[in-house]
Design a protein around this nucleic acid. Structure first.
Lengths: 151, 151
DNA sequence: ATTAATGCAAACGGTTTGCACTACT
DNA sequence: AGTAGTGCAAACCGTTTGCATTAAT
C-alpha cells in the first residue's frame, strides 16, 4: 500500500528518494507531499496540518511534523521562523526568496527578483554585506491596509 | 507606594503619562520600565519576563504582558518581528532604524539612512507596500565573515 | 522478520484569560 | 470608595516527545 496517482512534477521521484535512503513511503507522507506540492512557496506547520486534515481527516499533527523533519533532511523543504513566530516551511528545491509581511492583515508575499536585487546590491556595494535572501522578511503595511487605515 | 529613584531619561515622565490617562503607577510596572530602560533595542516577551524576575523574583508573566499591552497603547513600545521571527518588543520612542545581522559572527549594525531609503523606495514604488523600518532585520554575512569563509 | 513510522496522549514554552483580591487614586 | 491592576491558576496554541502498536520493506 503506497503509490496511487503520480505526484506533481518536482515531487514525482520523492517516493524513490525515500526508499533509497531506507525510509518508507506511507500514505501519511504522501498526503503531506501532496499538500506541499499544491502549496505555493511557504506554509506554516499549523497550516500544513490543517490542509492535510482537510485531505485526510485522520491526519495526526506529530506525523506531519515528523515528516517535515525528514523532508528537511532530504533537502526537500527548509524551515525558518515566520514573522509571527510560527515555524514556517518553504517547499521545493527553492529559489531563495524573501517575504513581505503586512503587520495589519497578516498577508504575505514573496519579494520579487528585481526588488531582491535592489536590496542585495545596496548592501553589497556599501558594506560588502552579503544578504541571505531566504531569511529576509520585510515588515510593513500592504497597499490595501495602508490605504484604509492611514486615512 | 509608587515612586522611588527616578527613571532613566527617555522614561522619566512615564509615571505621569500613566496617571494622566487614568492608569496607575505600580511597582510591577516600574520594574518593567526599568528593564526596558536598560534594554538596548529589541527584547522578546519571554526575555523581558526573565529579566524582570531577576530584578524582582515575584514577577508574574501575565502582569508583564499586560503592562506591555498598555505601553504599546501609549506608544512607548512597539512589538514586531526580528531576524528569527520571534515576537519582539521594541523599546522606547526614537530610533526608527533597521538592522543588519551577521549569521556567522552574530554582529549587528544599523541600516544606514541611504540604504533604508533604497529599500523603502523599492517597495513603495512597485507595490505600494509601506515598509516599517523599525521592524526590518536583514540577515546575511558581514564583509569580514564573507571574506574569510568564501576563500 | 525487521524496524521505520504511526497514533495517541501527555508535556512543552510562550502567551492569554477569568476571576477574586489588592492597592493605587 | 471606586476601580485599575495584581496574582494565581488554568487555558491556549503550535510544536515536540515517549511509547506501544502498526505496517512498509
Amino acid at each position: 500500500m503506497a503509490d496511487a496517482a503520480p505526484l506533481p512534477e518536482p515531487w514525482s521521484n520523492v517516493p524513490d528518494r525515500f526508499r533509497r535512503r531506507g525510509l518508507r513511503w506511507t500514505p501519511q507522507r504522501r498526503t503531506v507531499i501532496e499538500v506541499l506540492a499544491a502549496t505555493d512557496g511557504h506554509i506554516t506547520g499549523a497550516a500544513l496540518v490543517e490542509r492535510c486534515r482537510a485531505r485526510d481527516p485522520q491526519t495526526i499533527p506529530s506525523t506531519v511534523y515528523r515528516t517535515l523533519d525528514v523532508l528537511e533532511d532530504l533537502g526537500l523543504v527548509r524551515h525558518g521562523h515566520g514573522a509571527d513566530g510560527r515555524e514556517e516551511y518553504h517547499a521545493g528545491p527553492g529559489d531563495e526568496h524573501g517575504h513581505l509581511y503586512c503587520a495589519d492583515c497578516g498577508g504575505r508575499w514573496e519579494i520579487r527578483a528585481d526588488q531582491a536585487d535592489t536590496i542585495v546590491d545596496a548592501f553589497r556595494g556599501a558594506d560588502g554585506f552579503e544578504v541571505d535572501l531566504s531569511h529576509v522578511t520585510v515588515v510593513g503595511r500592504c497597499a490595501d491596509c495602508a490605504a484604509s487605515s492611514t486615512a
